[in-house]
């Protein structure tokens, strides 16, 4: 494989010098945009996270370079639990979305009849609802003395037994599931469409049960694409702000919310930047995985 790659690389320059220039011109706008609005701010945030602000007895601030902010990120109970909370929310919402979306995708791919068609129409709806509206919808729906609580109490649930969902981690997870369902389902459906019918029919011909077909053919073949979807959603949830801000608890907070509070309410831009770097590092895990997966595919 390595030989094939280097051979291709050797052919490349000769073939295209003119379109290389054209290509550069075409990429230039997005490159400039990314540099000005992404790369430079990111570098500035990195620098800020290594800036330490000291206050002397007279109340004057002095600034120096140091790792104190990162020390605080680990030592502070609040910040540490915020990080763990963020990871916990991301993992649990991704897991739930994955299961539900996989079932929908399976129904869309293999199911026939009215229910499958109906599923195909409704799963896409959250894609057209902004996250603010979805959050408020979930608050009226799931709040204590909200819609679901009302129905359950009409059915005989005593008052006060309805669990606290809104303004708790459950609210964030449920709303993130609601919002991410279409994306994950679209992705998984397209992955499942790539699995050929011939493969499944031949397995059935030799006597495989539906479960065996799912376990040994559909699941392994869809794994690479599915993992990419999981990566994307993980990134989305980990950096999310709207949903945890509107539906989350006061403590612990997800990093996006906590970062904004540190920046605007506590006037601690340095600690806020440090949290931004923490989000970045968490995302990096997912990003590295994604790039490796892409690379494997391109080599193959």
């Amino acid at each position: 494989m390595a030989v094939a790659i280097s051979a291709r690389a050797a052919v490349r320059p000769r073939r295209l010098d003119r379109s290389r220039a054209a290509g550069l011109v075409l990429v230039l706008p997005s490159l400039v945009y990314l540099t000005v609005f992404v790369f430079i701010p990111v570098i500035k945030a990195f620098a800020t996270s290594f800036t330490v602000r000291d206050r002397d007895d007279a109340g004057n601030y002095t600034y120096r370079v140091g790792l104190d902010n990162y020390g605080q990120l680990v030592a502070s109970d609040t910040l540490r639990s915020n990080i763990l909370f963020t990871v916990f929310i991301a993992i649990s919402s991704v897991a739930i979305v994955f299961v539900i979306a996989y079932v929908i995708a399976l129904a869309l791919r293999f199911g026939k009849g009215a229910s499958a068609r109906f599923l195909g129409r409704i799963y896409i709806v959250p894609l057209f609802i902004p996250s603010v509206i979805a959050s408020y919808a979930m608050i009226t729906f799931l709040a204590n003395h909200g819609f679901v609580d009302g129905i359950l109490q009409t059915l005989g649930l005593p008052d006060g037994l309805f669990p606290k969902i809104v303004f708790d981690w459950k609210g964030i997870v449920i709303t993130q599931v609601w919002l991410s369902l279409p994306f994950m389902t679209v992705l998984l459906s397209s992955v499942l469409l790539e699995i050929s019918d011939a493969l499944i029919e031949s397995a059935r011909d030799v006597g495989a049960s539906s479960w065996q077909i799912f376990r040994h053919i559909v699941l392994p073949l869809s794994a690479p694409g599915a993992l990419i979807g999981i990566t994307f959603m993980f990134l989305g949830v980990i950096g999310g702000f709207t949903v945890p801000y509107l539906l989350g608890p006061n403590a612990p907070q997800m990093l996006g919310v906590s970062m904004v509070y540190y920046m605007t309410n506590y006037f601690e831009p340095f600690l806020a930047s440090t949290q931004a770097v923490a989000i970045f590092l968490l995302s990096l895990v997912a990003a590295v995985y994604y790039v490796r997966q892409q690379f494997k595919r391109e080599v193959r």
Binding site: S115, G146, F147, W178
Partner: peptide
């Protein structure tokens, strides 16, 4: 499948309906 579709319709639709 029918049960699942109904549950999903409730989960997606009713919150919007309450709004």
């Amino acid at each position: 499948l029918r049960l699942f579709a109904a549950a999903l319709a409730v989960f997606i639709g009713i919150p919007l309906l309450t709004l």
